[in-house]
Write a protein that binds this DNA or RNA. Structure first.
Lengths: 158, 158
DNA sequence: TTTACTGCAAATATTTTGCAATATC
DNA sequence: GATATTGCAAAATATTTGCAGTAAA
């Protein structure tokens, strides 16, 4: 069965990968792929499970892990282990971007820094064959900066 | 007690942090700091524990976690969660660098890309107050590339 | 003397694995 | 029909927490 009807390129790529590894095309795998194809940015395992359950097709945690690991191996999915956040995944086909991470509230924001992207396209590391990169910028987001300032003022007033 | 005699700046910074938070200067904390000060690159919690045990001063896992978390909060230590590797730590005072990570053997290599560093110094993200960044470049290292090529040749010969 | 810290063990969280039943090929 | 996959539960791993004894201030 194939339920991921909305994303032919992803399906084709996954099918090809499964064939090459002599793995099976199970409904669970395609149901999860369908969800992945619809999410614009990052998502977690919990989100995948929740979506599957909500759409009336329960998929076990073990199978979700299995599928996600296959998709990572197939280079269709990328994994982000970021301190303070549950493991995040995103489609490898997402255009390159940087991640701004607030060290106070741990919120994550994607930004397209076109100068950075262009610059990175010029970088080569001698004997290393680059596939992709992850860029995390840590700092304080405007909301947390505002809160901190407010608290500082309050303290002074005392 | 203060055993981290070899790194006065680090000690001072940690002491100041502990004071500001009304925390105590325990021998365990300084013993771990001393180790950290001597490691050139990345290290893991296991390495810290092993070193402590070898030097005859056992420190419990809970205390190591506690200390490491304090040092991260004090911005003296940075944490790297990299897929396929145990959580890595490194001194925040280490000069900026990029990480090359082989997606096959999971080996990590630090490189100083001075053009990248210079470029990053020009980047600003509007309402975001940048503290530091992490740059991970994923790909195939020369060793794994060679192995793959060799296997391909072997397969052809059959 | 007050109370934060340590060590240990238990608790929690996350991911992997073993196995019987099932479904793909 | 052969065997890969699923779901569940148990195991393995990583980190945090509760608590009683200890030590820093």
């Amino acid at each position: 069965m194939n339920t991921a009807s909305g994303s032919p390129e992803l399906i084709d790529k996954f099918v090809e990968f499964l064939k090459s590894k002599k793995l099976r095309k199970t409904p669970e795998r395609f149901a999860l792929l369908e969800y992945i194809a619809t999410v614009p940015g990052h998502f977690t395992l919990d989100m995948m499970q929740q979506h599957a359950d909500e759409s009336g097709f329960h998929v076990s945690r073990a199978t979700i892990y299995n599928t996600v690991n296959l998709l990572v191996e197939a280079r269709m999915l990328r994994r982000h282990d970021i301190e303070g956040l549950p493991t995040q995944y995103e489609l490898a086909s997402t255009p390159p971007h940087s991640h701004l991470i607030c060290t106070t509230c741990h919120k994550l924001k994607e930004v397209r820094d076109k100068y950075f992207i262009a610059f990175m396209n010029t970088r080569k590391y001698n004997a290393f064959n680059t596939q992709y990169y992850s860029h995390y910028v840590f700092g304080t987001c405007s909301t947390c900066a505002r809160k901190r300032k407010r608290n500082a003022v309050t303290t002074k007033k005392k």
